[in-house]
């Protein structure tokens, strides 16, 4: 497996193309723009389709259109753009279309700045648009995972006919690390049982999210909730580091989990029994696994670059009322020293 030094945003496009992604639609926004640049460069080289859309709304609706044809489709954005895309995402979820959306989270609220933050957690993990729906959400923490999880995202999107969001941040998008290229390239096929492709076979098909009949609309909601339950049961992914004997468990995702891992090493050197639990899927959230950990009597500290959005999920999962939080905002990364300080407070 050959490796190259690659930036995280480029790795997304590499993963997508080896996963058989056929169309990219996007709108410029820092710090996600390199994904758009790379798509504009590489997609047309192999006849894949690229359009720079006139707006974030147009981009996600182009995704909706191309996804309706059963092709593998990608878009990418950042916080303010994700807010604009929510309308399209709820339509995609409602119509049960597969697609992958990459969010290179920047600091907010409002225009904020272009530094990293993890504050899109709620708008991505909890829905964000109208109605009861869930995105599948994957949180990479390395350039390798920016590629690998993008590939996995397409599989999940088609397995469940559901939007999958890659929730990353400005650091992961811009940092350069070694990337081992995918071993295989996937050639997609169209599922003509539901897609609308403009051909004889799919002429009877309909992609829609409107249903005037209350009972039928409720039934559709039941169906969606069943699907999300199945996802919760089958797709949880997480990683642990030194939690075997841990008395304090840091819970962290994305770039913050890299810093948290360094903290575990530093704390262990000082004889502190600290471990790391890193959710890779944010929806489904690894609730059962965290509950099992809580039952061993350990304490939790949530490490995230927002006001404790994931901490709420940890509290719900574990039933622990006082889950501590170390956080930063505004583009500032969490500092190793601040986590150590909190560990010593809690210990």
């Amino acid at each position: 497996m050959p490796a190259q030094l690659i930036a995280g945003n480029s790795a997304v496009i590499i993963g997508a193309m080896y996963a058989g992604c056929d169309c990219f639609f996007g709108y410029p926004i820092t710090p996600a723009s390199e994904i758009l640049h790379e798509a504009s460069k590489y997609f047309p080289m192999v006849g894949r389709k690229f359009v720079q859309a006139e707006s974030e709304e147009a981009a996600i609706n182009m995704v909706y259109g191309a996804a309706s044809t059963g092709h593998r489709v990608l878009t990418a954005s950042s916080g303010p753009g994700m807010s604009l895309k929510q309308e399209g995402i709820t339509y995609i979820a409602g119509a049960e279309l597969p697609c992958v959306i990459v969010d290179i989270n920047r600091a907010g609220p409002g225009l904020g700045n272009i530094g990293p933050e993890q504050s899109d957690y709620n708008q991505v993990v909890k829905g964000g648009g109208n109605g009861c729906y869930n995105n599948l959400v994957l949180a990479p923490n390395s350039v390798q995972e920016m590629c690998d999880l993008t590939m996995k995202a397409f599989d999940l999107a088609f397995k469940y006919r559901n939007p999958v969001v890659i929730l990353a941040d400005g650091v992961l998008g811009h940092m350069v690390e070694a990337l081992k290229f995918p071993d295989e390239a996937y050639t997609p096929s169209i599922d003509t049982t539901w897609a609308v492709c403009g051909n004889h076979e799919t002429r009877p098909n309909l992609v829609t999210s409107i249903e005037l009949d209350f009972s039928k609309m409720e039934k559709h909601n039941f169906k969606l909730q069943d699907k999300y339950q199945k996802i919760r049961e089958n797709e949880v992914q997480f990683e642990t580091y030194m939690i075997g004997d841990a008395e304090i468990v840091l819970v962290s995702f994305g770039i913050s989990s890299r810093i948290a891992k360094s903290v575990v090493d530093a704390a262990r050197k000082e004889g502190l029994k600290v471990g790391l639990f890193r959710p890779i899927t944010l929806f489904p959230f690894p609730s059962k696994e965290l509950k099992a950990l809580a039952d061993t009597g350990c304490k939790f500290i949530s490490i995230e670059m927002n006001n404790g959005m994931m901490r709420e999920d940890i509290r719900l999962a574990t039933g622990c009322a006082n889950v501590d939080l170390v956080c930063r905002y505004g583009g500032r990364l969490i500092e190793l020293e601040d986590i150590m300080k909190k560990i010593k407070e809690v210990a």
């Binding site: 169309c23 609706n61 259109g65 191309a66 044809t69 492709c197 403009g198 002429r203 309909l206």
Partner: peptide
């Protein structure tokens, strides 16, 4: 074939369909 679309977004959705197929 039919696709039901969000308010005002039909030309964008159509763009996606036309480019993909």
């Amino acid at each position: 074939g039919h696709v039901q679309v969000a308010h005002g977004r039909a030309p964008a959705v159509a763009t996606g369909i036309s480019r993909a197929e």
